[in-house]
Simulated scan of single mutants.
Amino acid sequence: MFVGHGLLAFAVVALFTRRMGWSRERALSLGLIACAFGTIPDVDMLYAPIGLFAGAGGLLERAENFWTASTLVHRTVTHSLIVGSIGALGATAWTGDTQSRHVGIVLLSLLVAITTLLSGGLAGAIMLVFTLAVLAVATAAGRLGFGSRAVFGAALFGLLSHPFGDVFTGVPPQFLYPLSMQLIEGRVAVSQSPTLHLLGAVGIELATMWLAAIAFCSITDRQLRDHIEPWAVLGVVYAVAVPTIPPPTLALSYPFVVSVLGVGVVCSVPRLDPRRHEWLTAAVTGLTAVTVAVLTYVVTYNILKI
């Protein structure tokens, strides 16, 4: 679910600003800034790779170690609506004059200090990375000529929309950190079946990708269907995965995710030649192939289940 956070922010902000009369270049640029802000909360995954090297075991064991390590800090301090709001204020202040920049530094420094005091050194280090990322994106926004209001809107939407995308997978984020109250107590279930729930979560992620593709094509006056190559229909061969890989669940999703993404990569390869500059066709064709593969898997899985 990592990619969808940023793409949702891109689509919403770019479409909104375009509707408000902004030029397509400015709308797309601010959409990319919002996309970057929407991705920042997941910097708390930087600690997780330690799990890949902790202990022995095969690929699945190491993958499990990776996610176990990530739970120490993932979806905690950086996924808070309170932290996100302060981060947006800090980013906005950073794009102002010298006095405002000092205010921004103070706000973000307080985030690091309070987090370290309340949650320890690891959480404090993650918050430091979070604040540095916020400053980096805010700096990029300033160099692109965006004012404080635009930066605040992009930062606020990106940082605050991110945690809600995580309610379908794993433990819900700590929305109100550092407060002990929890906004959502448990994971939002798409289905009572673990496999159908995972497939539903994948469907939500694919929907955000399609929204971003539609937004980009709409703003740039392109026809989405012109960028879908016919061989994307080869995703239907993924039906063979139903009897050959374990039914995917949140606890065991790796074989499904890796293999279904492989279908998208294979179908996008013919358009990946950088000399052709057809990245959009490659991306949309790959996305179509993955969507066809997932839908085929869902239908085949339910037929065989019956």
Rank of each mutant, 00 (worst) to 15 (best):
H5K: 04
V12C: 02
A14V: 06
F16H: 12
T17Q: 08
I33F: 08
C35Y: 15
F37T: 01
P41M: 00
P41R: 02
D42P: 04
G51F: 02
L52V: 12
A54L: 13
G55S: 05
R62W: 10
R62E: 08
A63M: 15
F66S: 05
W67D: 13
H74C: 04
V77M: 04
T78D: 08
S80G: 07
V83I: 15
G84C: 01
G87M: 01
A88R: 05
G90N: 07
T95F: 03
H102W: 14
L107T: 09
L111S: 06
T115M: 07
L118M: 09
L118A: 10
S119I: 01
G124Q: 06
I126Y: 07
L132A: 14
A133E: 06
A133H: 06
L135S: 07
A140D: 05
A141I: 00
G145K: 05
A150E: 14
G153F: 15
G153K: 02
A154R: 10
L160P: 01
P163S: 04
D166H: 11
V167S: 09
F168K: 09
P172Y: 01
P172H: 02
F175L: 00
L176S: 03
P178Y: 01
I184M: 11
V188P: 02
S193K: 04
P194L: 03
P194Y: 00
T208G: 11
T208I: 11
I219A: 03
R222N: 12
R222G: 10
Q223V: 15
L224D: 10
R225S: 15
A239E: 06
P246F: 03
P246G: 07
P246I: 00
P247E: 13
L250C: 10
P255I: 00
V258Q: 09
S259D: 11
P270M: 06
P274Y: 13
E278N: 13
L280S: 07
T288N: 08
A289D: 08
A289R: 01
L295P: 05
Y297C: 04
L304G: 14
I306D: 14
